[in-house]
Write a protein that binds this DNA or RNA. Sequence first.
DNA 1: ACATCTGGTAAGTCATGACTTACGGTAAGC
DNA 2: GCTTACCGTAAGTCATGACTTACCAGATGT
Lengths: 103, 103
Amino acid sequence: MTYANSLAALADPTRRKIFERLKRGPSPVGVLAEGLPVSRPAVSQHLKVLKEAGLVSEEQEGARRIYRIDPEGLGQLRRWLDGFWDDALGNFKAEAEKGTKKK
Amino acid sequence: MTYANSLAALADPTRRKIFERLKRGPSPVGVLAEGLPVSRPAVSQHLKVLKEAGLVSEEQEGARRIYRIDPEGLGQLRRWLDGFWDDALGNFKAEAEKGTKKK
DNA sequence: ACATCTGGTAAGTCATGACTTACGGTAAGC
DNA sequence: GCTTACCGTAAGTCATGACTTACCAGATGT
């Protein structure tokens, strides 16, 4: 059921920007906030959501917290989407056949 | 940029239920609403969002509107996710190598 | 010890969006 | 034609969540 959290997390544009930025490599909170039009606390709150969704992991390094992408959440979302895709396409073709048979 | 709409659309639980229900085959609005804890107009509004995201297509059939899954939106979302996955995993491994080299 | 840099949390504001009921409009049945 | 299904749209309510500023705590450096 956790793919739901991933979907909710990635639905927000700001959170997606943070996530895309993290794709280029790990980063502390302050650096992330510099490239965004929102305050640092806002970034902190977004990172919390991303972390709870399993999309991001946190590593304490002295006074700083380094955030990086966690493949776990992304993997679960991908598996759900792939399964959905297969089912939907299967029924789609089945429907198409029924349609042609009707003719 | 339309994968963003798909994400936003699928982030809502009710909308996801509708979408999952549609996976089993096309359906008119009224039937969809029967299996849900919300009113029929609510379902109508959700279907509008799903349609604008390219996740669902509509077919007028007499007085009824049949809704079915549109592979287009799902495909775009999948492509985005796959691309993201590849990039993220690539950088992830590069980071891991850097980590081992440091030791 | 003190100032500084790090960043998470609290509290409050404000917009968005998920619902409701009420209505209107088109197609099918009698 | 008139009623009865089907469904979309309008308008209004209400909760949620994305932001802000203010504050607090731990690590670093002098």
